[in-house]
Amino acid sequence: MIERPVLDKHLDSKTFRDFYYLKEELIDFCRKNGLPVSGGKLEIADRIAYFLETGRILSAGAGKKKAAIISSITEDTEIEADFVCSERHRAFFKEHIGNSFSFNVAFQKWLKGNSGKTYKEAISAYYQILEDKKKGKLKIDRQFEYNTYIRDFFADNKGRPLEEAIRCWKYKKQLPGHNRYERSDLSAL
Rank of each mutant, 00 (worst) to 15 (best):
M1F: 07
R4T: 10
V6G: 02
L7G: 08
L7C: 10
L11T: 11
D12K: 09
D12C: 13
D18S: 12
K23R: 15
K23L: 09
E24G: 09
E25M: 03
L26E: 08
D28S: 14
D28M: 08
F29C: 06
F29H: 03
C30V: 05
R31A: 02
R31E: 14
K32H: 07
P36L: 07
S38L: 05
S38G: 14
S38C: 03
G39I: 01
G39H: 02
K41C: 08
K41E: 12
L42V: 02
I44C: 04
D46L: 02
I48D: 07
F51Y: 15
F51K: 07
L52V: 10
L58I: 03
S59G: 11
A60K: 06
G61T: 09
G63C: 04
K64C: 00
K64P: 10
K65A: 11
K66Q: 09
A67R: 04
A68D: 09
I70L: 13
I70C: 05
I73W: 09
I73E: 10
A81N: 08
A81K: 14
D82E: 06
D82P: 00
F83A: 04
E87N: 15
E87V: 12
R88H: 11
H89G: 11
H89T: 12
R90M: 14
F93M: 14
E95N: 12
H96V: 08
H96C: 00
N99D: 15
S100V: 11
S102N: 13
V105S: 15
W110L: 04
K112I: 02
G113I: 03
S115R: 09
G116Y: 11
T118P: 07
T118S: 15
S124H: 07
S124V: 00
Y126Q: 06
Y127Q: 11
Q128Y: 02
E131G: 11
E131P: 00
D132I: 03
D132T: 04
K134T: 13
K134L: 14
K134I: 09
K134P: 02
K134Q: 15
K135V: 03
L138T: 14
K139P: 02
K139A: 13
Q143W: 01
F144M: 09
F144K: 08
F144Y: 15
F144W: 15
N147K: 04
T148L: 13
T148W: 05
I150W: 00
R151G: 00
F153P: 01
F153L: 02
F154R: 01
D156W: 01
D156C: 11
N157M: 06
K158V: 11
I166D: 01
R167H: 02
C168T: 06
C168W: 01
C168R: 01
W169Q: 01
K170L: 10
K170A: 00
Y171I: 02
K173H: 07
P176C: 01
G177D: 09
E182A: 10
E182S: 09
S184I: 03
L186R: 14
A188S: 15
A188T: 00
L189T: 01
